[in-house]
Design a binder for these strands. Structure first.
Length: 333
DNA sequence: CGTATTTGACCGGCGC
DNA sequence: GCGCCGGTCAAATACG
């Protein structure tokens, strides 16, 4: 447990779904996230880049399913985080400087981002030692049910988890809209946390992508969304609001070869959403907006109570509502 | 009435 | 071997 391989990375892109910054974590090993989400067991991407040589742009690309053009993604990050900068450098793709404009405005709040991050990261120091093991059972059962029967075949594939992405987002809604349809299949109490964890599965048949949502027990304003696996299908057209059409790049809408790591990763969706949001809003004041909204604490209790009422179906303008959070815009002078 | 959610039971791994 | 625990199943229920 203590000798866990450091194959975990994270960085903090300015991803925002419905209000503030989002931190993203990547767990290449797809190790289980035990109990409460434990960022401290993850390795800083920066550190990783400095200490590990196994980490390069290619692996990132692969891991995150980014296309070469995705360097923009990093560039946007760069404007917001120093670590991101490191990434851009180490990756040898610093063409970002220009694209940075989009996020440059966010630069000042880099401290904020980090704050949100530490909110999730630091406290855990309390327990000191995190467990990083316990590879629970898993199943990509395309449709087979009979759990009592599958045990036989189970042996063969073992528990081969998909890589996981964990998004930490300050949000009052726990189930963030990402363009896909999810069916909730379980909910469990999280150890060391008063907030439960919800389990979702992509409703598209033969798509084994799973997702789980939980709130940080330290900072209830933060929602931790963990994706597992890649979608092997385009975004459902059920988004009648067509919000997706505008924010999701064509590459994403195109049928993706499941192997590809092409672009069905949620983080990319978030990127797009974020970009769209920034363009929509004042385009620059975003940073300052967050700066003064760092603590909408009076809101937490509110949404926490309606925890069970979150709709999981795709609302007509779910994305839009995420992109332009009314309450936050309101505060902006 | 069909579909999505809820929720307790159950499974399988792991530590003691 | 037993109990804990994260994760999943599936019958019952809610919802439109």
């Amino acid at each position: 447990m203590s000798d866990e391989p450091r194959d975990h990375f994270y960085y903090n892109p300015p991803l925002n779904i419905d209000g503030t910054e989002t931190s993203m974590y990547y767990n290449q090993r797809a190790s289980p996230v035990s109990s409460a989400f434990d960022p401290s067991s993850y390795m800083s991407l920066t550190d990783c880049l400095h200490t590990t040589s196994s980490m390069d742009y290619t692996s990132l690309e692969k891991a995150f399913g980014l296309s070469p053009s995705s360097s923009e993604v990093f560039s946007s990050i760069e404007g917001n985080q120093k670590q991101a900068k490191t990434i851009g450098r180490d990756l040898g793709r610093t063409n970002s400087t220009e694209n940075m404009t989009t996020t440059t405005t966010t630069t000042p709040n880099s401290s904020i981002s980090s704050s949100s991050t530490e909110a999730g990261v630091e406290e855990d120091s309390d327990k000191s030692k995190k467990k990083e093991e316990q590879p629970k059972k898993e199943s990509e059962d395309g449709g087979e049910s009979s759990k009592k029967v599958n045990k036989t075949k189970k042996k063969a594939e073992k528990k081969q988890r998909e890589p996981r992405f964990a998004f930490m987002t300050k949000s009052e809604v726990d189930h963030l809209e990402d363009g896909y349809r999810w069916r909730k299949y379980g909910q469990k109490a999280v150890k060391n946390s008063p907030y439960p964890r919800s389990y979702y599965r992509c409703t598209t048949q033969k798509c084994a992508v799973k997702k789980r949502v939980e709130r940080s027990f330290q900072d209830p304003t933060i929602v931790i969304t963990t994706y597992e696996g890649q979608h092997n299908h385009p975004l459902p057209t059920t988004l009648r609001g067509h919000a997706g059409a505008g924010f999701f790049p064509p590459s994403m809408l195109a049928p993706t070869p499941m192997v590809g790591a092409a672009s069905s990763f949620p983080h990319e969706l978030l990127m797009q959403i974020n970009q769209g949001r920034m363009n929509f809003s004042q385009g620059g004041a975003v940073g300052s907006m967050y700066a003064q909204n760092v603590s909408p604490f009076h809101h937490q209790h509110h949404h926490l109570q309606q925890y069970h009422h979150q709709d999981h179906q795709v609302p007509d303008y779910g994305l839009l509502q995420d992109i332009v959070p009314p309450m936050f815009l309101k505060h902006e002078p």
